[in-house]
Design a protein around this nucleic acid. Structure first.
Lengths: 209, 209, 209, 209
DNA sequence: AATGAATGAGAATTCATTCAT
DNA sequence: GATGAATGAATTCTCATTCAT
């Protein structure tokens, strides 16, 4: 439950404290990316962070909190990258394209982040045995995509389809492209992203366009 | 999801031996589906198979071989279901639709198989730390889809696109639909499958059609 | 949870199994007696039993079950010693004296048992933080003593007093004598037991006697 | 429960220093009372004292010194309560009754103190593994009781018995009454104390009385 | 063919203590 | 005088595997 239980507020020395936490979270990301979820022990994470298990335990309530931070941090980072690129587009089709391309671009530059989120989100469970995070694509992402798609339909940009299905499909397609690149580094995610944009453009735009 | 034969595995008393192995593999599938890859210990699997750990160890060289059998068996089963449905179609578009629909239909009827393959394929690693199976969509599936798509392009059914990208996207879309259903059982995979067929039809067919 | 989870009944090889469990319980008794409850780790117990921690974990579901066995076994052993001595007496006063003397005699011959029960009963707690056993003197003992005392009152052997208070006092007096002996080995529990019998005889017998 | 003065403990800034120490000792008492000796960690004690572990470590040489203070302080407090009540009695029988009643009255009003002393005295050990305090009833108490009893015997108030045995028995009886109350709060320690006085009166007074 | 017993490695976590500031 | 950060030892427990029978 966080270092000590100081009577007053939350953090005590935000400067050092937060730096250390970040360093450990980064080590956790790299470790999970490299050896996978099941093999990512606190010992290994600590080793990569160049500390001992107890330091990790000091800064995080437990493995659970650490792994949650991994996901939370990656979600926040990626959203900070994607959001302005979305905002720069006015049409629904433009936003959809920006979403696909910025997502792929972000992860293309951060291979470990990609592997870590996928691994943690797909495996991390609470004590009751249920997955702690939404499987594969998180709910808020689907909501966001759903809104873009629905807006496009209302404005006549897109044809009639089930927005949730297409949202799921877009999400998975992005992961697919990234997965193909991870499995075979000669794959170019950028050009695949462009192909994906074309593909979904055809799949979604209304007849007349 | 994978065209290949099931065999391998040296036998001792083919008759009883194989029954026992099957029973244990089934228990492994259910266990992984229920508690996830990381929590699926031999003890838990043995418990569900109503035996003891040593029996499991006796019939399989180790946990590795057992989990490989899990994937191998599910690939074989699903291929036995899908293959005839593919063969019944003559056009590339028909084959593509049959692929999508039969894949989803198979897993729709076998939730545990779906969860188990995804979990094992995404997590199981050899001693050197590399994934034992191709991540998310295995190579032979992509090869098969790729051939269908290329044939369709050659025959003018499909427009010009990167067959590998579309193969990856189709594969992932199927997983996406199934994932949506697992997360929310009110989702109807059959109608989603139909939507997916439409979506990819639009995305792939050549201009004039 | 016991070794494995064989499909059939409880124990598998009662002969070896039970011997090993007994050996470990004995080691636990000696360890707790020697180093106290808080310092009695599974490692230390295993060491004294000339095995490894994992053997202990194999035969007992956990430290909890082991320590419960410690208490259960000592209660059973001591009762087997005391019961016939109680039965040999017909009067309530005789039974009371026999109870005091046989209790002290039993523990006098088994110093480690005495120290272990006291330590475990006074310290062992369940996850919710409550003591697992009745504190200091267990309920069934008080019930038994209470019945003897009440019988004596009904038959006119004993004066009028609160049977529960006297039961508690007798119980504690026995522990006191044994504690005095443990702290100072020159104390003779046998003669103290005799003194105690006299003391409670005077304290309980009805006026006229 | 123990005639002795509280002092010791080197001071730095007597005024604030001593207040802080007292506060921490109180927190230790409550913690031990609530969770037991083995679970009373410095972290938990600090938490209840609304500070951090390092503050505790700063004010006390270590956990050992803190727990010793717990016992010392309770002994001093209880003696301050009991002593005047003893002094008010002139006869040995009166002093014995006053001892029993004031002891029970003190602890009746301070449940946490009772639980804490019993727990610490029965468990706390020095590095060599020996109990730091005399087990269950400490020596000075027995000496005091012994003197009362011997005086009573010399003056003809009490019959002939081993004063040490009776001292031990009285001590344990008091703990027994308090233990019964702790286990079952409906028990009334005051009336049990009165019963105890009667019981020991009968058990100790000389024949003719 | 089958299995109960054993085992050592490694898991997460808690602990009392120290130290630089 | 006070404390946040760090740390290494030790805790219980689970694991996959091996072996004698």
């Amino acid at each position: 439950m966080r270092p000590e239980s100081s009577p007053s507020g939350r953090k005590r020395n935000p400067i050092i404290e937060e730096a250390r936490r970040r360093q450990i979270v980064d080590a956790a990301i790299e470790t999970v990316a490299e050896v996978g979820y099941a093999q990512a022990s606190l010992a290994r994470i600590a080793q990569r962070a160049q500390t001992s298990k107890s330091v990790v335990s000091y800064h995080f309530a437990g493995k659970d909190e650490l792994l949650e931070q991994v996901v939370t941090q990656i979600y926040a980072d990626s959203w900070a990258f994607i959001e302005p690129r979305l905002a720069a587009q006015s049409s629904a089709a433009g936003k959809l394209a920006a979403y696909i391309e910025s997502n792929i671009a972000y992860m293309h530059a951060r291979r470990a982040h990609l592997l870590a989120v996928v691994a943690v989100v797909g495996n991390h469970r609470s004590a009751d045995g249920r997955l702690r995070f939404e499987p594969s694509a998180d709910e808020s992402v689907l909501t966001l995509l759903g809104e873009i798609l629905r807006t496009g339909q209302r404005d006549g940009e897109f044809r009639d389809f089930d927005p949730r299905l297409v949202a799921v499909t877009v999400s998975q397609a992005i992961i697919g492209v990234l997965g193909a690149w991870v499995a075979d580094p000669t794959v170019d995610p950028t050009s695949y992203a462009a192909e994906l944009v074309t593909l979904f453009d055809r799949a979604t735009r209304s007849q007349g366009d």
